[in-house]
Design a protein around this nucleic acid. Structure first.
Lengths: 193, 193, 193, 193
DNA sequence: TATGAATGAGGGTTCATTCAT
DNA sequence: CATGAATGAACCCTCATTCAT
């Protein structure tokens, strides 16, 4: 029956929930464990979140908001397109390294029955950002002429997969540099192109 | 009380399980439904699979074996490295299109507490295959000089993400061609390189 | 894991449910206790009834059907109106004595949020039956002229209350004869009327 | 942190409790809502009532006391027995109309495991009052000779049922007059008696 | 007096698994 | 081989009650 500030408790719960959801996935995660790890009673969890679903949504939304805000500023800064894209990729990869578990959750549970729309919107926005960067790069001559729409899809997919690999396979470490080199240069020798 | 060959029943169950697991994910899938769809009694399922987990493992392994076999032959065939890699990627992407739901399951539940080792082995083998192809390409001069190990990691990650995107986002359609162009050429204009 | 015929189990559950609902009322009754008394596992209850509510409904409906059938035949038999009404009242009072606990439940939980319509219909039908009997009695001169509709309402109310009293107050024993005398004769002395 | 007189707070709580208990019944009523409606904190409720049960008991007792006081005076006034009984019935029926929801609660939850004794005593006292009125009526020749004890039981039962019907069935409206006519005259034609 | 965050037992329900037939 | 009724642990969630402030 310790008194705590409400905010403190809420954050403890979210931290614990992040942990448990990440390890077990949504369906297998259980409130008892989240409460135990948070050092809160079961009922205490329901003081801050109406139910399991809302707790999950809160987690997802908080993180999407955070990343969304960071990437939004990239396009605005006056950089070359390749610098901007490089920055964008680094931001995502580094974020993935930092929040390994969450990112895993974020990607794995993407197919869920709720919160889907918010997530799709988030991914679409990120993809559109990449698309605009590519178009700028083509205009400035930095990038070769290609279908920006298609390319954005492939790049976003690749990014997702790379992050997933890093989170899932502990023997796979991918640096932003590796990602950049791959995306910018491709495999073929320049002569051949 | 119908008599069936054991094999026939086992396959019915696996087919039904694939369906249910794909639609609901591992945790939410339930044996009753699998049995019903298979046209088998609940107890019957346990005649062929010790428990839910083993049923799931069997499904995963069957699929990994299938793809593993197909990709294995690619390297053997006398093709150029780029043709072989292109073939490899197409094979995965087309397979993903064909078994969309399963692939989704495969990736989504990849973080599970069981079956992880088999999956890691599978992915490692596929990655090594890609690595060997890249090394061959570098030797023959097809590919520019790069760290084959790193490149293989990124490519396998990208592949995974592209497949995931196709499965999750219904507005994202990625063809093998798009994938190829991206991987081989990169974004930069040849002149710049 | 004893094998039982489904019907046997279902009846055991309904008997136990009748007991527990009667003693505790709907809200305080709990499935665990019903299962224990029925000698069935918790899950077993859900094999026969989708949920607590349906179990309750089944109980109510079964009993209403039973009484409804019995009273229905009364009007059909060629008796004098007073005999028929006497019979009707006896039937209800005796039924109440026999199924004391259930009747209690029946009356007490009448105000519930579900199953209300069925119960209201049941009571309305019973009241209409009484009304017809009174009208017949007035036609034949057995009963004094009075508003049959009003009288039926009061009689049904009285019946309900008498039954309730018998069920709740163990020091109140009311025989069908007492009920009859009261309803037919009233309190006033004949001379005064 | 508002300061209030203890009595004021206690009455606010009882008013709110009456409201909530009436609407939801004992088991489903919850302290949080009672506190909210009373404009008092949850803990505040426990300053005045040891627990939910005691709050409920207080409510019941308050009401029983009120009606008990009113009916007590009836016998004392020098009226004819029939006038007194008529008055008694009217008082109960009108009270029921006024406190419909509470009466409903009163009757519905009467079978509870606590507060039973007080209620039984109340009903017994009321019944004894009726019994004395009937005995007086028989002595004065107003009422026909009958078993006053039995008759009192039936009349109190009827009263209870009539009140219950009014509370539960919105299509049943019973006036004190209807009740009176029924109880005094009965159904049979005077000639027949 | 008064607050309301915190507690945790206990509720309804689900479902993987067993086993008598 | 095959069945499906039965089991019971474990899930999510509610709410009467407590107590540090």
């Amino acid at each position: 029956m310790n008194k705590r500030s409400g905010i403190e408790s809420k954050q403890k719960i979210m931290k614990a929930a992040m942990d448990v959801f990440s390890r077990k996935g949504y369906a297998k995660a259980n409130i008892r464990e989240i409460a135990r790890i948070a050092g809160i009673s079961i009922g205490g969890v329901y003081l801050y979140f109406r139910n399991k679903e809302e707790l999950y949504r809160n987690l997802i939304n908080e993180r999407m908001l955070d990343i969304g805000n960071k990437t939004e500023t990239i396009a605005g800064k006056s950089q070359s397109a390749s610098e901007a894209l490089s920055h964008f990729l680094s931001l995502h990869v580094e974020n993935a390294l930092k929040h390994k578990e969450f990112i895993l959750l974020h990607i794995r549970e993407h197919g869920f029955t709720f919160g889907v729309q918010e997530k799709k919107n988030f991914f679409r926005k990120q993809r559109e950002l990449v698309e605009r960067l590519i178009q700028r790069g083509i205009r400035t001559g930095e990038f070769r002429k290609c279908n920006a729409d298609d390319m954005a899809k492939v790049i976003m997919g690749s990014l997702r997969g790379v992050i997933l690999s890093m989170a899932l396979d502990d023997d796979v470490h991918i640096t932003p540099q590796m990602m950049n080199e791959f995306i910018f240069n491709g495999l073929l020798t320049p002569a051949r192109k």
